[in-house]
Amino acid sequence: MPFAARAAGASAAKNACVPLIVTRDLRKVFRNAKRFPGALGALRGLFSPVYEDRVAVAGLSMEIERGEFIGYIGPNGAGKSTTIKMLTGILVPSAGEVEVAGIVPHRKRRENARNIGVVFGQRTQLYWDLPLVDSFELLRAIYGIPQDRYRRSLDAFIELLEMGDFLRTPVRQLSLGQRMRGDFAAAMLHEPPILYLDEPTIGLDVVAKEAIRTFVARVNREQGTTIILTTHDLADVERLCRRIVLIDHGRAIFDGPIERIKNEYGRERTLVVRFTETTSAPTIPGARLESVEGMTARFVFDRATQRVDRLVREVSDRYSVEDIAIEEPELEGIIRHIYTQGYAGEERSA
């Protein structure tokens, strides 16, 4: 019996109505030796080390259902990678609970490993000096995939990811886009029910990015693979994920559908007005002037308190207007705002 079906099947029977991934008050504190500046400082650190605690994950609770596509985002150092490492079982939590498909990952690292596939954008699991297909053969042996099933999934990946041309090329000669496609196939050859993607599109050109996105969306849709995507490319998230978990300073500061974060923060709209003549310091009641550039002015207003038709009427009554446009905020702008201003949910005033 294929192991993937066996592993997933066993846990599915055991936990029919339990979420696939559960963390409860998950914490990870790193203890680092404090470094002192200079050569004498280095010596001091050597003989009387002083330790500092750094809280990477500070009480994270979340539940992820089978088949979800999660965008796990946050600024650098927020604790994203640490969380993923705990979910994969290679890092032991300092406190709290974690369960993936009914398994506590760090207790049964190898059993958990059969249920997961991992892609790192900045690191490859392929054998650098050997033809791409050699890495796939090694994975076939590692996961004990039967020859016929291996052949079938490899053929499918070769077609989907268009790998036919470079299957026998040493990995070090591949372009980044080709290598990433190889890494995706490598992570999914054993058909894992869970996929962790860590910045999978970093450094790729637009075409390669789009190919990867299309592939991942398809895997999630057709095979029901649960995917957790960690990225700084919010276009990836906007395109692929239905739910966002936003983490900062080791805490989830937002967890919900993309629409909600957009509604809460997307209350601000920008009214872009192009005048027929140069207009210094134009004003519209109920809107804040953001900038004036030549004959174009940008006003920011709160969609919840101000009506667009009134603002448009006001501005055209007062000035000679050539064109008016309304801009909606993009996810990237919203997230940038939260990173710099902090998240305050519903209470935030416009």
Binding site: K85, T88, I90, R110, A113, V118, F120, I142, Y143
Partner: peptide, 14 residues
């Protein structure tokens, strides 16, 4: 040093 050990530890191997 390079962090590649994580990749090995994420495999069902000793």
């Amino acid at each position: 040093r390079e962090g590649g050990i994580a990749v090995d530890l994420m495999k069902p191997i000793v």
